[in-house]
Design a protein around this nucleic acid. Structure first.
Length: 584
RNA sequence: CGGGGCAUAGCUCAGCCUGGUUAGAGCGCCUGCUUUGGGAGCAGGAGGCCGGAGGUUCGAAUCCUCUUGCCCCGACCA
């Protein structure tokens, strides 16, 4: 391919509005172009990279025994009503009415395809002999993001690989799940993206029923909790190891009421009383299956709804509405405390609360807090449990080390679904024992765009992107110093043809530009291998080559050069070894 | 949906506070000459409803009101 015949709009300056490395680099390297907030065009280079990621995903899915199909991006709204997901998705679901002969047909742009695929399987699968089966597709998904951000990291339409396994038994589901898990590890490795599988909330199946594949990145929107021992989980799921907290042997001071006008958040109270958040007991009123429960956590900790739900064995947990809080505590939101709650209700507390003495709490009275509040003397707790999000430095649940917390981008998610959708849509099969059973499902998603974001966010230097060979839009760029020189251009085109015949993606920078311009662009776009054709090499019969991740160029003999480089590129594409080593 | 910011040439921005010829710069683009190993130089040129609507004024990119779009923080994210 000739550079001049394609469209590579590189930019010297950072476009207004781009702030994180991946967004800046993808725009500057001419990979993407914004259409509107949350929607991007993939320009030729970006689309090439995207397709390479897509093909790796496809290869590994096929290898894992999954079968590709392609579902409609549209679906009737009624299908989502059957599974109660119109309400569950809320504004995320993009809906419209299609005019059909004077009538309006309500449809959705599918945000994911559990409904469509389960509907298909319910119609065409009826025997255990057809199971298990894993079906997948790679397709654009539509989810309205109220606040799209960071370029293609978070958009309202994105390319997703979604796979669904249909299994007759839990053992079969586990096998399908494990196969997908293993395939995901291969995919991220082959794509040159650092990744960390973390335990995630597992829903109805329980156990190790869900993992997220997180790409560690400073600008990731998710937080992962991890330990040197290998334990890793997202914040909703992360357990906290034994904390051995005992009640401190401190003389309780006299409890005291203090006016705190306008201070109803931990931050405001701290500013007002000039104290640290860990001196506060935060009292949250939750509605647990419709019943009010007080949950106490230390002021600098965050309550974890999933843990509340599990502890109380409840189906639904949500923060109480202001009216309920006022009824239960006798005060508006922001002044709840465990002492003399107006209405008797269960009180559960995080372990850390046990270690607090002379604490500050809300007084259940408007604009008022209490100082020197002490457990037992001033309030009682029904149960001490792990009920908060893990924090940096908490003990690991698996070893004696402490937990660390890092930002990450969610790149994939594997999930044991159970029978939620098969139940709702009647996907059953006749088992060997001649009874009808509901098919058990798993679902497995990868954000293909996020593979690119993950690379651009983790693999770059001051000059630009550094692509792994497996994903690079072109693996080789050939830059003749003088594009007007016939001999140079002939050699460039010859080499390009040889590379292309060997299955290597190659572009010739045939622009009549000064060398500096070509070098800057080559570095910015990040082609793994750059071959410069200049007077030096032309005379001595040598090629100047430079790997993007290495500092210096080197000369190799022209004779046999292509064969040698093709072999190296093919090897590197498979192993990604040099790319990884260079990053260390 | 709350809070903050921005909107002037293809891109990055100045001008606005304190209204006044024909709205500017750098980069990019076109023409010519020169140059050719890390974003060259000279000369000439094209390119703007100053986001949109309304208002104040003799006069608005500039002041006021409304509106739209984009960016950031927060809330939300099966």
């Amino acid at each position: 391919m000739l550079w001049s015949k394609t469209l590579i709009p590189t930019m010297k300056e950072t476009p207004e509005g781009a702030e994180i490395p991946s967004h800046i680099l993808m725009l500057r390297a001419g990979l993407i172009s914004q259409v509107m907030a949350g929607a991007y065009t993939y320009l030729p280079l970006g689309y090439r990279a995207l397709r390479k990621a897509e093909n790796i995903v496809r290869e590994e899915m096929d290898r894992a025994g999954a079968v590709e199909l392609h579902m409609a991006a549209l679906a009737p709204l009624s299908l989502y009503e059957q599974t109660n997901r119109v309400e569950a998705f809320g504004n995320v679901l993009i809906k419209t009415d299609l005019p059909r002969g004077g009538k309006k047909v309500p449809v959705v742009f599918c945000p994911t395809h559990e409904e469509t695929i389960t509907d298909i399987v319910s119609r065409y699968v009826s025997s255990y002999r057809q199971l298990p089966i894993t079906l997948y597709q790679i397709q654009t998904k539509f989810r309205n993001e109220e606040r799209p951000r960071f370029g293609v990291l978070r958009t309202s339409e994105f390319l997703m690989k979604d796979a669904y396994s249909f299994n007759p038994t839990l053992e079969s589901l586990n096998a399908s799940y494990d196969a997908m898990y293993a395939a995901y590890c291969k995919i991220f490795t082959r794509c040159g993206v650092p990744f960390l599988p973390v335990e995630a909330e597992s829903g109805p199946i329980g156990g190790d029923a869900s993992h997220e594949f997180m790409i560690p990145s400073q600008h990731g929107e998710d937080k992962v909790v991890h330990c040197v021992c290998g334990y890793a989980a997202n914040t909703e799921k992360a357990e906290i190891g034994p904390q051995n907290i005992v009640k401190p042997a401190v003389e309780p001071k006299a409890m005291q009421e203090i006016a705190t006008p306008g201070a109803h958040t931990v931050e405001q109270v701290c500013a007002f009383l000039k104290c640290k958040p860990h001196k506060l007991i935060k009292t949250l009123i939750y509605l647990v299956d419709g019943k009010a429960v007080a949950v106490l956590v230390r002021g600098d900790h965050d309550a974890n709804e999933n843990k509340v739900r599990k502890t109380l064995n409840a189906a639904k947990v949500e923060l109480a509405d202001p009216a309920t809080i006022e009824r239960v505590t006798g005060a508006p939101v922001g002044f709840a405390g465990p002492v003399s709650l107006k209405e008797k209700l269960p009180i559960i507390a995080d372990h850390a609360v046990l270690g607090m003495a002379n604490a500050i709490t809300g007084a259940n009275k408007a604009e008022t807090h209490l100082l020197n509040v002490n457990l037992d003397r001033d309030f009682a707790v029904d149960k001490f449990v792990d009920i908060r999000n893990a924090a940096e430095g908490d003990p690991c649940p698996r070893c004696s080390e402490t937990l660390k917390i890092s930002n990450a981008i969610e790149g994939g998610h594997v999930f044991k679904l159970g029978t939620k959708y098969s139940e709702a849509l009647g996907a059953k099969f006749l088992d060997t024992d001649e009874t009808q059973k509901t098919i058990i499902m798993g679902c497995y998603g990868i954000g293909v765009n996020r593979i690119l974001v993950g690379i651009c966010e983790t693999s770059f230097d001051d000059a630009g992107i550094i692509w792994p060979v497996a994903i690079a839009p072109y693996e080789v760029v050939i830059s003749p110093i003088k594009a007007t020189d016939e001999a140079s251009m002939k050699l460039a085109n010859d080499l390009c043809e040889q590379f292309e015949n060997a299955g290597i993606d190659c572009v010739v920078d045939d622009r009549d530009q000064r060398p500096g311009v070509k070098f800057k662009d080559a570095d910015l776009v990040g082609f793994p291998l750059r071959i410069v054709l200049g007077p030096k090499g032309l005379e001595s019969g040598e090629l100047e080559i430079k790997w993007r991740w290495e500092k210096d160029a080197k000369m190799i003999p022209l004779a046999g050069a292509v064969e040698k480089l093709v072999a190296e590129l093919n090897d590197e594409r498979k192993t990604g070894k040099r790319f990884r080593d260079a990053k260390k």
